[in-house]
């Protein structure tokens, strides 16, 4: 059971962002505690990706506050987010297709040697290490990632988020391109990271995975927050009802 008595790791308060009149996120408030997995659910276009992009620095919120460990922070670009130990696996993966796995993993944070030159061998060695842990079957270290399968690409994106010791992890549909076996590995990884006290926002469509992995679920519809429920205290049907009807079930806390 997650201890939710202290200060939340992340609080997104009253966040709004609009794109040319479309309110993609409309006064949404969610929070996340250390060692907790909060699922973000909703139909396509509900605003889930847009909400988390305000936290990852890809978008700038129009209004609202972001608090990390109770302190308000400014996140103006992805560098700010990374500096706050926020790592993101984007729905689009955000990989440079023409570069190999190691180059993508360290993109923007290359390992440099004494003379300031990029140390490719060291980066490849580190990449081999982390991939050995996440996806032991991965062999294609020296080809551009556009030569990889969807699942392999996804594992590169996951490795990038995990490698840099995130405290806050955002996973936008991390299992979308994965087969059952790889999905199982991601589930195990999430549980392992959770045990280390990392807070995770997980956007996930498969309701069984949500019931299994998440502590709480926040449901969005048309940019607005329908509600947040303890996964233990509701059934999967309750959550599906929230997604479809946009109403919070009466029994939930």
């Amino acid at each position: 059971m997650v201890d939710r008595t202290g200060t939340p790791l992340v609080e997104l308060r009253d966040i709004s962002i609009a794109f040319g009149g479309i309110k993609a996120v409309d006064h949404v408030t969610v929070d996340l505690f250390p060692g907790e997995v909060v699922g973000l659910l909703g139909h396509n276009g509900a605003g889930k990706s847009t909400l988390i992009k305000c936290l990852s620095g890809a978008y700038q919120k129009d209004s609202g506050q972001i608090l990390i460990n109770g302190e308000e922070v400014e996140i103006n670009d992805p560098r700010d987010a990374r500096a706050l130990n926020i790592e993101t696996i984007y729905q689009t993966l955000a990989l440079a297709d023409n570069l190999d796995a190691a180059s993508n993993l360290f993109l923007g944070r290359e390992l440099v040697g004494k003379m300031g030159f990029v140390d490719e061998s060291a980066m490849e060695a580190e990449t081999r290490k982390i991939m050995g842990r996440l996806n032991p079957n991965f062999r294609k270290f020296n080809v551009p990632v556009n030569m990889l399968s969807g699942g392999q690409r996804q594992s590169v994106a996951i490795a990038r988020a995990v490698y840099f010791n995130a405290k806050i992890l955002i996973m936008d549909e991390p299992t979308a391109a994965l087969g059952p076996h790889e999905t199982q590995m991601v589930s195990e990884l999430i549980q392992e990271l959770k045990a280390q006290g990392i807070g995770i926002f997980l956007i996930e469509h498969d309701i069984h995975n949500v019931m299994k992995l998440c502590d709480r679920a926040s449901v969005m519809k048309n940019g607005q927050l329908v509600g947040t429920v303890d996964v233990d205290k509701v059934t999967d049907e309750d959550i599906l009802g929230m997604i479809i009807l946009g109403k919070k079930p009466a029994l939930a806390a």
Binding site: P78, L95, A96, S103, L107, V118
Partner: peptide, 21 residues
């Protein structure tokens, strides 16, 4: 150098490059 790698990254996927900071 980092500069050169960023040139290639931007050439491959400008959006990914920006999201990588």
């Amino acid at each position: 150098t980092r500069f050169g790698r960023y040139v290639f990254a931007i050439g491959g996927n400008p959006e990914a490059a920006a999201l990588s900071g």
